[in-house]
């Protein structure tokens, strides 16, 4: 009866309905939209505080996003645990250094992929905080609230993401 829990993959429509219902539940239980990217800003602030001390909390940005564990930080931890549980149940958990689409174009050496992922992460982390949200906070929660910011952000994400991916693969190899 619980075999759906051990399936490798669910229909994208079932997953989408699940995420939509989970968003509704989040508004009721927590009075918040689902989002992920502030957790990374707070983590960064917490790490900087270890190095530079309390004065980090006086920075304008960290007065707004206090570097401490909050609701959204716990949500991101939950995402990690939930995905891990799902992958363990289906037997899909395995350590993988280089994704196959990357390997077919750029080769299977670890270092180029890690360096690219790190650089991509820097750009994305910077952009997410600049835009005030990510694919979750703007892309799902913003659009479903019919927020002007959400629809504009998701259009920008996919326009420049599509162009960058095209340059990276279609022209690069």
């Amino acid at each position: 009866m619980l075999s759906f829990l051990t399936m490798n993959e669910w229909s994208p429509y079932a997953v989408g309905i699940g995420i939509g219902l989970l968003s509704c539940l989040t508004f009721v239980l927590s009075d918040k939209p689902i989002g992920c990217s502030t957790a990374f800003a707070r983590t960064s602030g917490m790490l900087e505080e270890i190095v530079r001390g309390r004065k980090v909390r006086d920075m304008a940005y960290y007065r707004q996003f206090v570097p401490e564990i909050d609701w959204e930080w716990m949500l991101v931890l939950g995402v990690f645990l939930g995905a891990c549980t799902s992958a363990l149940l289906s037997g899909e958990f395995r350590l993988e250094w280089v994704p196959s689409l990357w390997a077919t174009t750029f080769g299977s050496e670890h270092l180029p992929r890690l360096v690219t992922a790190f650089c991509g992460g820097i750009i994305m982390g910077f952009g997410a905080r600049w835009a005030g949200g990510c694919t979750s906070g703007h892309g799902i929660s913003g659009t479903l609230q019919l927020a002007v910011s959400g629809w504009l952000a998701v259009a920008a994400f996919f326009a420049s993401g599509g162009l960058t991916a095209y340059i990276k693969y279609a022209l690069g190899g």
Binding site: C36, S37, A39, F40, V76, V79, P99, W102, T116, A117, C119, G120, G121, I122, I123, M124, G125, F126, G127, A128, R129, W130, A131, G132, C134, T135, S136, H138, G139, L152, A153, V154, A155, A156, F157, F158, A159, S160, G161, G162, L163, T164, A165, K168
Partner: peptide, 17 residues
């Protein structure tokens, strides 16, 4: 910010969630 995010999104291949 969204345009910057998109570049990182394509280079990294994952989003923050």
């Amino acid at each position: 910010g969204g345009l910057i995010f998109g570049v990182g999104f394509a280079v990294l291949g994952y989003c923050p969630g």
